[in-house]
Structures are given as C-alpha cells and as structure tokens.
C-alpha cells in the first residue's frame, strides 16, 4: 500500500484584483506522506497561508487550478457536499490566532462537539460529551468538565489554542494543517503546544503540514521543509539537508538573517517582497533581490531541479550565488 497521503500537482490559486487575476500560489507541486511533518517556511506574502487554505478550499473567492489529491480524491473539483464530508473528518486545520478562531458566543463543549456532530450523526449527545471531555484531556486542559461549559474569553491564549487543536483532531484526521499554530503564543506556551502536536502525530499517524515563519520551529518539528517565496516553492528538502546544505539564495539569506551565536551583523535581504500585483510574471522571482548576480545565471522559466535525491531547487542561479558585501550600500538607495 502506498504511503502517500496528499499529492498536490501544479496548484495555482489566484485572486481577482480589478480586472485581472493574480496568483498567490503559483504552480505548487508537493507530496506528503503519512506520519510525516512537512514544514512550509516563508515570510508574509510568500503564499504559504494561501496554500494551506487552498488545500482545504477555504478561500472565499479564489480561482484554484491544478489538483489536490487526498487519498486520491481530488479536492479541487469535488462538489461541496463531498468536500464537507472530508473537512473536519479526514483533513483538519489548526489556525493561527486562537483569540479569533473560536466563536465567542458558543460554549467550548459545543464548539468541539459540532465537529463530532457533523461527521458522526449517530452519536448520542451523551457519547459526544464523553468524547469532547476525552479530547480536552488529550490536549492537556485541566478540569475538562468545567471547561466544557466555559466560553472562549474565559480561557487563556494557550488554553484556547488547545481547544482549537481539540477541534482539529476530534475525528482523528489523516491530514492536519497547522497554520502558524504558535505565532500568537508566548515561548513557554509555544514549547508546550509543539510538544502536544508532536505527541498527537505519533499517536494518530497523521500527516502534518506545519506552516510557519519561524525557522526554529521548523528545525524542531519538520521531517521535510519547503521554502516559499512570492507564491512559489523555491527549495524543498529533507530537514537536515535544508539547514546544512541550503542551495537557493533565498533559503541561504533567510537562514543568515536569523540571530544566532557570535554574529555581529545579520544578513539583510535587499529590497522588499513584491506585492501580489507586482510579481514578475516571467523569470526568476528572486532575481531583483540579488542584483549583483549576473542575469545570465537565471533561467528564463525557472523550474525545480532535483539536485540530489529529494532535494529540489528552483532556478539555476543558486549555482552562481554568493553573498555580496555591498548589499548594505545598495540598499540605502534602493527605496522603492
């Protein structure tokens, strides 16, 4: 039996601005295996959250092309009724902000129970309550019977995020998408939530897509990592390879801009992330941010190259890339 859980092929998600469509996710191809954590890293505007939302088709008004196969069922072209059977059951999502992800006027028990109710119509109310309490226990919420009747505003941020996780794992999903699950939390709470996700992964045998801007979180959690820039995957590799042998100029730059031991000066990437409307439609999207690299180093239509087994890099420019010392000087004048 194949171990493959999710297969994304040439996924493009575009939003309409004015009369034109702009691709926030551009031609993304990915696979995720069972019991695997795939980290997706990128800065704001890289399209990582748009990708997560596309997988579950949660965008309100977006044009989605390509295919997303969950256990060989195509989500992109599925009728909504079928999609609703998968959402919350086979695939689920943990959201970034636990303050806003919960309905302020609904009891915690009801909010978790709703997921159970939608997918297990035969469950009695009593069974549902038992399962909710079991879930609250599982995510480490003390006094679950009491919390069951509480409202979101009565819980701390960390506790609310546990509730969001309980909603996501209620029906033992095969695919769990965590969209910046710890960004809104304090570090000690973050550590606890990450431990919880790790524990759940081992117990549920689920595939997890972990979206984050925090390279430390990826280093701790992921088996494989995809780096996104301006809607595209620029590099994808097994986690050790990516951190020890990064190839794409963007990956290298990103890793160098994180404060670590013994650095006097952090690396600064020149220029700014292009907005959706200003994305170059042709050529290497990162070229504008490494202007000291000769134009001939870039491909005309950059594609992902498999440089070693399982390690893909977009564009040929990585072979010619070096860090420039003058980047600081240029940057002063490079106000756009």
């Amino acid at each position: 039996m194949s171990n493959k859980l999710l297969e994304i092929k040439n996924l493009t998600t575009s939003f309409r601005i004015g009369d034109d469509y702009y691709a926030a996710v551009d031609d993304v191809t990915l696979t995720l295996n069972k019991n695997e954590v795939l980290g997706i890293v990128g800065e704001s505007g890289s399209g990582k959250s748009a990708l997560a939302f596309s997988i579950m088709r949660l965008h309100n008004r977006a044009k989605i092309e390509g295919s997303v196969l969950l256990n060989n069922q195509d989500i992109v072209n599925m009728p909504t009724t079928n999609l609703n059977k998968l959402r919350g059951d086979d695939m689920a999502m943990i959201f970034q902000d636990p303050l806003t992800a919960l309905n302020p006027l609904m009891e915690i028990g009801e909010q978790i129970g709703e997921t159970l109710l939608l997918h297990n119509p035969r469950m009695t109310q009593k069974q549902r309550k038992l399962r909710v309490i079991e879930l609250l226990n599982l995510v480490g919420i003390p006094r679950p019977e009491y919390v069951f009747e509480q409202f979101p505003h009565e819980l701390s941020g960390g506790m609310r995020q546990r509730v969001v996780i309980a909603i996501a794992i209620a029906n033992d999903p095969e695919l769990l998408i965590a969209d910046e699950p710890t960004t809104a939390l304090d570090v000690t709470i973050q550590a606890q939530i990450l431990d919880l996700i790790r524990k759940l992964k081992n117990e549920m045998n689920a595939g997890i897509i972990l979206i984050t801007h925090d390279l430390g979180v990826v280093a701790e959690m992921a088996d494989r990592v995809a780096v996104m820039y301006a809607g595209q995957i620029v590099e994808i590799a097994e986690v050790h390879t990516l951190f020890e042998n990064p190839l794409h100029p963007y990956t290298k730059s990103l890793l160098n801009s994180v404060p670590t031991e013994g650095q006097d000066k952090l690396h600064v990437i020149q220029g700014i992330v292009p907005s959706l409307k200003n994305l170059p439609r042709k050529g290497c999207r990162f070229a504008a941010r490494i202007p000291w690299i000769d134009a001939s180093a870039h491909e005309e239509n950059p594609v992902l190259h498999e440089v070693e087994l399982g390690h893909f890099v977009r564009c040929t420019c990585h072979a010619h890339f070096y860090f420039s010392d003058e980047s600081k000087e240029d940057e002063k004048n490079g106000i756009s």
Partner: peptide
Amino acid sequence: KDFIITARAKGAPE
C-alpha cells in the same frame, strides 16, 4: 470573522 472559517473547516455546510 475567523471563527466562520473554523466552522467551515469543521465541515459545516453553508
């Protein structure tokens, strides 16, 4: 609101 997306992600019909 974000919790509406949460509801959709649970599989709730419109």
